[in-house]
Design a protein around this nucleic acid. Sequence first.
DNA 1: TTGTAAGCGTTATCAT
DNA 2: ATGATAACGCTTACAA
Lengths: 332, 332
Amino acid sequence: MVTVKDVASLAGVSTATVSRVLNGYPNVSDETAARVTRAVAQLGYRPNRVARSLRVQTSQAIGVIIPDIQNNFFVSIVRGIEDVAIAHNHILLLCNTDDHPAREENYVDLLLGEGIAGLIICASDEKQSSVPVRRVIEQAVPVVALDRALSDLEVDTVLTDNVAASREATEYLIARGHQRIGVIAGPDYLTPGRERRQGYEQALAAHGIPLDPALIRVTDFRPSQAREEARALLDLPKPPTGLLVCSGLMTVEVLRELKVRHLDPMRDLALVAFDDTVLSRCLCPDFPLIMQSTYELGHTAAELLFERMRDTEKPARTVRFETGLMERSELA
Amino acid sequence: MVTVKDVASLAGVSTATVSRVLNGYPNVSDETAARVTRAVAQLGYRPNRVARSLRVQTSQAIGVIIPDIQNNFFVSIVRGIEDVAIAHNHILLLCNTDDHPAREENYVDLLLGEGIAGLIICASDEKQSSVPVRRVIEQAVPVVALDRALSDLEVDTVLTDNVAASREATEYLIARGHQRIGVIAGPDYLTPGRERRQGYEQALAAHGIPLDPALIRVTDFRPSQAREEARALLDLPKPPTGLLVCSGLMTVEVLRELKVRHLDPMRDLALVAFDDTVLSRCLCPDFPLIMQSTYELGHTAAELLFERMRDTEKPARTVRFETGLMERSELA
DNA sequence: TTGTAAGCGTTATCAT
DNA sequence: ATGATAACGCTTACAA
């Protein structure tokens, strides 16, 4: 293995000078800099990032924690993060939690041990996740909460404007004459779960439609549960005429249940749903979908993170991304 | 930050003893071991993996290089790798190359700098990728080639049995009376590209069907190119009556082209294709697909890697995974 | 502008 | 069974 020492010898300078050249310090004469650069090339020197990390007490890796690597929503986010990271010569430590707080906590500790320069986390539980993340903050490692906020923590946060999205979707249904509108929402302990239900409720309230608890179904975002709630709603004595489904994976199950019952997602039950997934678009090409800017969510989160690394002081920011309602697909 | 030193002080022992306890060395008295364990818990000590990595000259991270993080095929592989890695207390450095050898080479150097314990790579080019990977091997870092072999390199390799899969698929068409069978294959510089074309050719030869160069279309696996080749095949004076498409993403484009021309992928042109992707299943639910064991590919690659870390000596192995032909879907 | 040397937190060698 | 100490490769005061 080639080290700074070898480069220093060949260039006839000290290791300190080599380091200065490598890290672009200004106070090096052009002539020595050139000699060092030549030696680096000649030896094929590659810096040992581990040694550097130990010395400066932070690595050039950023931790990324997501609940589901198989879910395209999060993968697209990761793609956005990666582009920013690589531009800063940083690398991604990717952690998949399956929404298990325990697995998440384990990963946080591993990442801390790796001396990550920063953490981007799509938390599995606003409150529970705060516990390990607080340890990260105590180590002065910058954190960005992504898609899901963290309770009682002063961190930069990147979210979708869930309330507005949900309100808009609900009003879309109201404008088409629906009064009995159901919602399959996510859990209260996750930002998108809670806020999307709020948006739904706000829309009804704004139009003087009373809330009917039987129409509000709270799940933990798991598809199987969505299926059950869809059944329950459809089996109601007076089933809803409109339905808002609050995540892409859940939407697929709802569409399946409708198919089994030979119900059309537009005529028999006016459906509006979050997220553009291939499968839901396939099952029904033309119902309105709430589009999130997934790549941009990741990209922005990463940019906030790198800004934060430069300046620890400024107050934490929250960025909200607007959504769009897309009525038709162009699948085929 | 809590260090071994702090633990040592509290337990009234030396750092050496703490390290011994932490790493499960046998020659420590039960009594001192207990004291150390208590001190660790009391202080909430977490080992600094960076310092450890520098000292032992290898980290507990494994590098994973894939061409396309948005492609479910590779994501499923990563999932398989992750489960094995976490079971060994290792973490994943995930690198997405977009099939650019330059980007890949850059990542390899970064990973080397991180002192990875091993590398699993789905190469962007059998020959070109060998160049940076050879540097990895020279550093005595174990490598597993996954889905795509590496030229002139003695490394453990995990592949799909592409030739058999392709032969089987082609024979499926022959058995149904087709004589003019087209193939949209991948590039020769990638194992699945080359081998799948070979399987196709073997099947034709075995049945005395002469090769028609006009029916053999070699792409670089990009969907847009697949679309063009599909058009060219369909526009032939005597178009094929059967078609083998050698990747999931390409299949989607072929199906789209068929749709535009109002051709049925089963009646008008007997289609067989690699990979079960949601979208292709949506566009046509019932044509035969060649199924690969993606999760198992990743899982096995990771297991080979960890075995290799334990034993550098034994000869490199190549594992081939069989495929299955699935004729119907259960999407809805 | 450049060099010397300390030290980051571990592990492992060599004593005891 | 345990302790003292060197070393891993780098960066950064501090000195010159």
